[in-house]
Structure formats: C-alpha cells, structure tokens
Design a protein around this nucleic acid. Structure first.
Lengths: 205, 205, 205, 205
DNA sequence: CATGAATGAGAATTCATTCAT
DNA sequence: TATGAATGAATTCTCATTCAT
C-alpha cells in the first residue's frame, strides 16, 4: 500500500468518524458515549482517540462543520440580489442547519476555533447592514440583536425540533416581521459586543 | 464559620439547599453533582437526601417554585385593566422568572405536576385571547405560538441570563412588536396542541 | 417524678426498644435500619443509641434474649421424666425458637456474651448424655453433632420458616430418627470442639 | 507484580474475576463490595462491569456454575449401577459442590435461569424414586424432603465449610441413615411442591 | 496502525452514628 | 433526657481515556 493510499485511508477513516459523531450527537446529544460513536463508525474507540485526542476535540470538529455550513449560508445571503431576501434567507438557512444538527447546538459557540467564528461574525454583520442599507430591516437593530435572535431560534428548535420539524419556521416568520415591518421604538439597549463575546466564551451547554 | 456553626434550623436549611441547588444548576446545569450543591449549602449530602429523597425531587422542588410564580404572573396579567398591558406584562414577568430560575428551565414542563401546569395553560390562553379580543394582539396567533415564544425566550435567557441580565428584554421587546403591531400574513401553521404536549412530555433537557 | 419512677421509665423504654428491634429483625433481618426500629419503638434514634451504643450492641441484646429462651428449653429438657423425650423436646423447642426469631439467627453464636453460651453448651451436653445413658440416643454421637444438627435446622428454617412454618418439623422428625433409632456405623469423625468454637467465633452471618 | 503486569488475556481475566468473586463471597457474603472483588482479582472495578453488567449478573454467573455442577452430579447419580449408591453419591456430591461454592448458596434458587433448574428438579426426582423403587430409600419420603435436606445441608456447610471442611459429611452420613435404614412413621407432612416453589422464588438470602 | 479490554475517578444514594436543640 | 436533623464514608455503576496485543 502506497503512502498516498494510506493517507487516503486515514482521511476516509477520519470522515467516517466525524459522520458517526455528527449523527450520534444529533440523535443522542453530546452525552453520547464514545463507544457508541466508535461502533457507528465501525472502528474501535482507540482509533477515534488517534484522530481526536479528546472527546472535546471530536465535538469541536463536528461543530466546525456546522459552523462552515453557517458561513456558507451567510455567503450566499450576501450574494442574493435582494438584500432583504438575503437576510431572510439567512435566518431560515440557519434554522435549517440548527435543526439538522440539533445535538451540537450547546457547543456551537463555546470553543476557540476563532478564525471561522470571526468570519461568521464579519459576514453576519455584512448581511444585516446590507439589508438595513436597503431599507429591508429596521435601522435600530444591531448585529448583537441578530446573535440574540439566533439564541432564541435555538431555544425553539431544541424544544420542538425532533417532534415538530417546522414549528421554528412559524416562530421565525413571526419574529422576522418585527425586524422587517415594524418601527416602534425599542427602549432597551442591545447587549454589547463584549457581553456577547463573554457569553459565547462560557457557553458549554 | 466552622462546620459545626453551620448547623441550623431545619426549615432554614431546606431553603438554603434550594437556593444552593438553584444557583448551582444555573452555573453548572442539572448535571451538577449533589456534593457540590451540598458544599454550597454548607451541609452534607445526607442532609439534602433527608429533605429530597432523590435528585429528581430536588429538581422538581425548584421547578415547582417557578411554576407557581408563572401562574401568579398570569393571574395578575388577567387582572390588568388593559388587556394589552396585561399580555405584555406577562411576557416580561415570565422572562424575569425564567432568569431567576434559569437552572431549572430544562425540567419546567417535563414532569407530571399536572394540576399546576393545566392551570397555567388555561390562564395563558385567557390572557392571550383577552388581549386579542381587545385588539391589542393580532388575531392570527394562537396559544401554541405563545408557548413557542416562551421557548425562544428560554433560549435567550439560557445564553445571556448570567452575563447580561437584560439582553432578553431587548429580544422580547422586539418580538412583542410582531405580536402587537404587525399584521403581515403568516404562511406556516402553528404547532398543534398535541405536538406541544408531546414536546413537553419528552422535555428532559 | 421520683428517681425510682425514672428508672422504671428507662427500663420500660429499654424493653420497648428491644421488642421493636426483635420484631423488626425477625421480619426484615439484621439489615433493618435503626430508624425503622426507632419508629416502631416510638422513640428517636438517639434514644436507642443512649441504651445501646452500637447497632451491634442492640443485636447482641436481642440475641441474648433468644439465647436465654434456648437455655430455658434445655433446662426443661433436663427436667423431663424421660430422657429421650427431653432430648426430642429440646430439638423441637429450639426449632420453635429459631423460627420465632428467624432474623437473629445469623448472630446467634458469633458474639462474646460468654457466660450464657457456656451454660448452654453445658446444659446441651447434659441433655444429650442423659439421653444416651438412658439408651434413647445412639452412643456414637457427641455434643458437636448436636451443634451441627442445630446448624442444619437453621438452614431449613431460614429457607422455609416464613412460607411453610412446619416444614422444619418434618425435617427434624426425619433427622431425629437417625439419632434415636439407627445404629449404622459412622465413618466420619465429628468436628472437634475447638473447631466448633472457631466456627462460632467467626459466625457473623 | 506491577499493576501493568496484571493485564492479561480477557478470558483468563474473566475466570480470575469469577474466582475472586466466589472466594470473596465465601468470606464476606454477597454484600462484599465490588471494589474488594476487583482488588482480589487484580483488576479495576470497570473491568468487572465490562464482563458482568451488574453485580447481580456476576452473582448469577457464579451461581450458574454451581447449578450445572449439580445437574452433572445428578446425571451421574442416575448412571450409577446401584440406585442406593447413586442416591447417596448425589447427597455427598451436592455437599461437595455446596462447599466449593459456599458463597453463592443464598442465590442458588432465587433467579429465573429456569431451564437448568427444571432439569435439576426432574433429575432429582428420578434419582430419589429410583432409589425408592430399589428399596434403598424409605418409601414415605418425597422429593420435597430431599429439597429440605439440601437446605439443611446448606445450613451446616455455611457454618462449618471454611473452618471444618468435613463436618458436613458427618452430618450427612447421620442424616442419610434416617433415609436409608429407618422406617419409623413420620407424623408431619412434607412441604407441598408449591410451597417449595414459593420459597425458592423469594430466596434472595 | 487498529483494536477493544482495562482503568479509576466520579455520580447518586444509603445508613450507622453524632450532636444541637 | 429525648429527639431527629446532620454527617460522611461506603456502595453500585458509568464513561472518558490509556495501552497491551
């Protein structure tokens, strides 16, 4: 077997493990045992630990995939012809992703993996501001409000996701109307970006 | 304060335990060990088990406090002169309660403490319908949407509650505008009441 | 309340505890909790610990009562007109006592309480030898065989005592025939008295 | 021998655990802690739980060995040329087995491992009836008496087994004479087979 | 390299014993 | 003196992680 073939095997193995971990976490949550994941991947636990020194590392890798899905969604939101449509599409795309990877939500923002998260924040801001510049979204909301909206989305999906796969759509539709069709003044200030950073840093659940 | 000096009146001790449990659950989640709670309460584990035969019982007791607070909030919402004000007050009262008892939100609906929960549902419906009859809340939303709104509220508070104690107010203000000042049509149907019941029944997290 | 009255109270209390302990052990075995015994006696656990510094001490006291019942049985066996009848009566009396105090059997011989046990051994030897001298019991058995017979009796009663209160009688009837009506030689030697002492010393179950 | 050196082949390990369990149960009873058994076996607790998901399972496995030994003894008792010799051999074989597995006698009959137990009952009846037909055993005893005899045997062995490994032989020799050489009438009826079944069903000690 | 057996710290719970009231 | 609340060591069992094969 050539070195190249070995490398290919290894890569394949790695992705089998990631797939197994993702689907296991999706179904059983992050408390799922490593043994279960190993079985689903058709490997021994030891093999997992060769690729991912720690369960946390494994989780982080799965989360990374979810995060890049989100980034992709933001990119295409930015590509949309209509800024408002793009914004709205982003909301629903993220909902879709959340529902698909329900089990990973607890760690979605907790870890370091900074580059990707920075990109996500950057893109998210763009999407929002573009929609605001186009007049599609009220001007008195800020990016931190969007982060908060995603927290609320998570709340809905974590409850209803497995039983009622579309309940979050209704909630999002309703909520998005406040962003796009309302102008009543808001008395409370949004959380500061440093607060948001702090929250994310603690977020282990 | 010596370990000996911590021995107190039983009733006081009980509430010390409940307080310790609440704050521990807030910070570490419901997986927090009984030992930790005992230390925080300044008692031995055995003392906890004297009052609460099971960890579940301890959780249930914390939860019970929350539920009766919620019921009280709904009662006073019904008593409000203005139906719209009552509705709005309910939203913010529940937010307040959720933030105070953040740690036990995961079990808020799962258990069988039925009478109280039924009363809550009944009152909640009343509050909503009264506000709708008064024209303060759009007529195309149903009680299940309110339940969903509370799920979303929980999502926000579980993230931000400890760090940014008012972030949820902002989110709620925004969201409530969609309920009170918007009329754009909604394409998705709300979850059915049986779906909601099913979701609650499974709700162990 | 006079000192005498106090002493009477205390004595009464002590016997209430002993009664409660005896009946609890009879029904639930020696693993029964101290709290249960206290409740049955209508006192607090603390009161038990005032009279009996240790659970072991309490058990020993209950056992002491059983042992004196056995001693009494042996005394009346010695008083019997017919030596063979006396011997037989002893067997069945002990069976009766064992069944009545089924829960205490595990500690019947383990503890120190020497005087009573010595008396029991002494009397037991007498009963046996008297019956042998009278020709009612075969001459090739020794007191250690009698001790062994009581072990076997315990085995039967511990199994069947609660369900089939007379099963042990049948077993004893059968076994006694070997002692009284058989003469076939025995090839194995009986356990030595020092072995028996050693066995009793270890007997904590 | 270092802790590392103790790691062995899995199969060997399993029997080391079973051996350790047996001898620990013999000495400390079934209440012995898993930690103790693990130490004696030279493994960690986790290793025990890998092979035996539950302490009950561990006990059941030890018990199973005993039961199949008993069945084997009965088979060879049936194969004996002389029916009386076969019967007698069975008694002593069972004694031998009981002594060897002294620690698990409390659970010998309680569980549901039914097939084996039914076979044992069936064979036991055969052995007895064959000996009765051959005139070697008195005709007024039934299989339930044999069960009772084994209870009594257990009583003797549980007391004396570790200290005086042959004491039970003497007791059995004596007792067997009542079965084989006596004819005096028996006044008490044997326990019914349903009583015996009930006793076994409860037998957790 | 892969495997899965072994490890052992940690979790919930029980109960004999102590001690403030 | 009596009470029963408080204590905490011990028990069964789980699971992330290590390492012999």
């Amino acid at each position: 077997m050539s070195a190249r073939a070995l490398r290919r095997d290894a890569a394949e193995n790695r992705s089998r493990i990631l797939d197994a971990a993702r689907s296991t976490f999706d179904q059983e949550g992050l408390d799922a045992g490593m043994e279960v994941i190993a079985q689903r991947a058709g490997v021994g636990v030891g093999t997992i630990y060769r690729r991912f020194p720690t369960k946390e590392d494994l989780i982080a890798s799965v989360v990374h995939e979810v995060l890049s899905d989100i980034r992709d969604a933001q990119r295409s939101a930015l590509d949309a012809n209509d800024a408002g449509d793009g914004f709205l599409a982003l909301l629903f795309d993220v909902g879709e992703i959340y529902r698909l990877h329900l089990g990973c939500l607890p760690r979605l923002w907790g870890d370091a993996d900074d580059e990707l998260r920075e990109e996500i924040d950057h893109l998210g801001r763009e999407v929002l501001e573009r929609a605001q510049r186009a007049g599609a979204v009220r001007s008195d909301v800020v990016y931190e409000d969007l982060v908060t909206l995603f927290w609320s989305l998570r709340g809905v999906i974590e409850r209803s996701g497995t039983v009622s796969p579309d309940a979050w759509r209704r909630a999002l539709e309703l909520q998005s109307q406040a962003w796009m069709f309302c102008n009543a003044p808001l008395r409370t200030a949004p959380p500061s970006s440093s607060e948001v950073a702090l929250i994310r840093g603690q977020s282990q659940n």
